[in-house]
Nucleic acid binder design. Structure first.
Lengths: 146, 146
DNA sequence: ATCTGCCGGTCGATGTCCTCCACGCCTAGA
DNA sequence: TCTAGGCGTGGAGGACATCGACCGGCAGAT
């Protein structure tokens, strides 16, 4: 990937609604050239999409936690991600190396909702859970350097 | 916050570049009404910004890890987030309850780069680290339910 | 009951931006 | 030298964002 593509990617990672006109000005290219590069980046999957970044407190999900899960029966087939996908409170699911097999990032409205969610997770995927609640997040979703 | 604002928020969380025309069609409002609601959501900070979601492999950062940090001197002032902010490989920093004090999400190019980053983290914040490398991420950054 | 603000909506006009197409410039290979 | 392909520019059209003017309903005060 070329240097100018990297530049476009970091610009769009920083401001996903930046106009093609502005992108062109920043990169020194014409609008059309930028446009076709962005389309190519999307087609190649480098840019997977665009998203609004929310204030989770303002949106009514003030409690964030990381939930590490470990299968109760280690011999059972490991399809926890699919079994948990229907739980909208789960924002992300990472398969990890180490003691536990997955780390889930969850957002809920209250401690009570967290308790209920943990029960659902254990029941749906037949796992034990270890949860770490986040107290505050100084920063999150920062754009990469490249 | 009203129902229609929630709807706008989830639509924009799912597609951050959706046009106001499409938003208006989805919500049943006029373009102007949607426009003014979105501006209000931004002014109130409910929508903090927009971002392109990237394929981190394609962008040259194929290795993701969670780094839990714990101060070596518990009596020292706790300003780890500021001391670590200059490290661009750190995508997120959460203050957490539990054994460790922060969880960092980091993205690097290689295991070697991870090793180097860990040294920088330890040196910059005077902490010990415990890192969990992610093997794959089935999903990430899903829009909330509300 | 009427008046008065205000919030939130529609409508319409204007300027900007997106999007596509035709063309030109390099470079590589036969 | 010819040719093909990748990548850029420029322009034209239509779609879109943005703003102002106007309108209707609701609440509180007179």
């Amino acid at each position: 990937m070329e240097d100018i593509d990297r530049q476009i990617v970091v610009l769009l990672a920083g401001d996903g609604r930046m106009s093609f006109t502005d992108l062109a000005r920043e990169t020194g290219l014409s609008v059309s050239a930028v446009h076709q590069r962005v389309r190519r980046l999307q087609k190649r999957g480098v840019i997977k999409g665009y998203s609004a970044v929310l204030d989770h407190e303002a949106v009514g999900l003030p409690l964030t936690a990381f939930v590490s899960i470990k299968p109760i029966d280690p011999a059972a087939p490991d399809d926890a991600p699919e079994k948990l996908a229907h739980l909208d409170e789960i924002e992300a699911c990472h398969s990890v190396a180490g003691e536990e097999s997955y780390i889930l990032k969850v957002r809920v409205t209250s401690p009570g909702a967290l308790e209920e969610l943990l029960q659902q997770i254990r029941a749906a995927a037949n796992v034990s859970t270890r949860t770490t609640v986040v107290l505050s997040t100084p920063y999150e979703g920062r754009p990469p350097r490249l």
